[in-house]
Design a protein around this nucleic acid. Sequence first.
RNA 1: GCCGCUGUAGCGUAACCAGGCAGCGCGGUGGCCUGUGGAGCCACUUGUCCGAGUUCGAAUCUCGGCAGCGGCCCCA
Length: 435
Amino acid sequence: MRGENLTLRGMRNLLPDEKAKLNRIESEIRRLFKIYGFQEVETPTVEPLELFELKSGEEIRHRMYRFTDLGGREVVLRPEVTASIVKLVVQELRSAPLPIKIGYVLNVFRYDEPQYGRYREFKQGGFEIFGTKSPLADAEILEISSRLMEGLGIKNYYIKIGHEGILRAALTNFSIDENVQDRVLGLIDKERLGEAFEILSSFRKGEEAISIIRSLREIKSKDPDEAFRKAGGVLKEIPEAIEQLENLKEIIELAKASKVGEFLVDMGFARGLDYYTGMIFEVYVENLKIAVNGGGRYDKLAGLLGWDVPAVGCAPGIDRLSLAMDEKTVIRDDLVCMIVSMVKEGDIIAAKLASMLRAKGVPTFVDYTRRDVSKALSYASKRNVKYVALIGGRETEAGTVTLKNMETKSQEELRVEQAVEKLSPYSLQRLDTHI
RNA sequence: GCCGCUGUAGCGUAACCAGGCAGCGCGGUGGCCUGUGGAGCCACUUGUCCGAGUUCGAAUCUCGGCAGCGGCCCCA
């Protein structure tokens, strides 16, 4: 048994540099939880199969990690988090004051073929707002998505936005029921228009529906006003669809007022999850062909689980944001001080100094090896240590330490208390107050 | 699920096309050099992804598997 096949396909070991970057993204998401009033929760990794059979969509359903547990239950590793969050809200938060704002940062599992930016286990953040149909909530989700990109230093992003309510209202107008809508919208999402239209054409008013869908699909614009003008023309005979169109227009106006970044309005846009009922969006970065964040409004999902409460939310992909992010924006958590005791008698001073520095919150590392000074310095250099405290025979007698600045290569002999004083500005607590 | 490219020490690579002793760099460990040579020197460390085939002989050619990367589909 050697190491080679012990990591499963699509799974990853996250090494220190990559993990630091992911942590940076997670803290940005958690910062937004606080700023926007979301409360973070955690749901089970393993869930009953039924939970995702409800409305997750065919695509996700057959890519689930699914098995029978020892108790004979059909279970899955969660392929997405929204259904679990809805279950949590419905089961546990019925008496909470509305709106309920819930956040999470959790791993999910999908048995896809691994490729660029796609793994079988990955991590999503999430923002979900329950209990309001107000377009202000939709706009807030877009605003958060925008602030997240900016907070991570990602500049060239745009938000592809559409509205399942418009498409559904149009289909409903031609007497096409909801199950068929799910299938047709799923096919449209996959660009399998032939199959979608074939299904529609078996309905009495199918040809009219196809013609409307065709026209809507052609409306794609970075100028929202233009998109609305065209869509208004296409849908003028269908008041219910116009109503949905107005909703999207209002959301975008509110989002613009909150300085949300560039939009690409796409009237034919549909998403693979069946539960969306209104505004839907995905966030893209120039030069990166995959979505880094996606979400939308799902007003009927909670109802299926027993509490009819509207909702809107989004799920940024932590790993994909990492791909879009500049390495330089990550602050490496380097060691501040390495203590090298060169003689046994120095160990007492080393232990004392280490303890005092750590009590101040200064990241400190004691070299246990009693190796050559030059080897110790070499190690310190590779670990990006800022200061090395050397304690040899001289220092032990004088009760001092030699503190060497690794960047400037200068050094000075200080009493232990002075050394602690000098390094205390590097305290982690202090750094936190600056962030 | 389908398609393409790739697989040589812990990592990065050479030799592969045109079959003939697997080499180099980095790292790691130990040692030497009187406490700062963040170095150097010496030694050690470790490999042709797995399996079959062709051949006197395979890292090299063929087939299959697995894996990595990427593409389709879909998404985060």
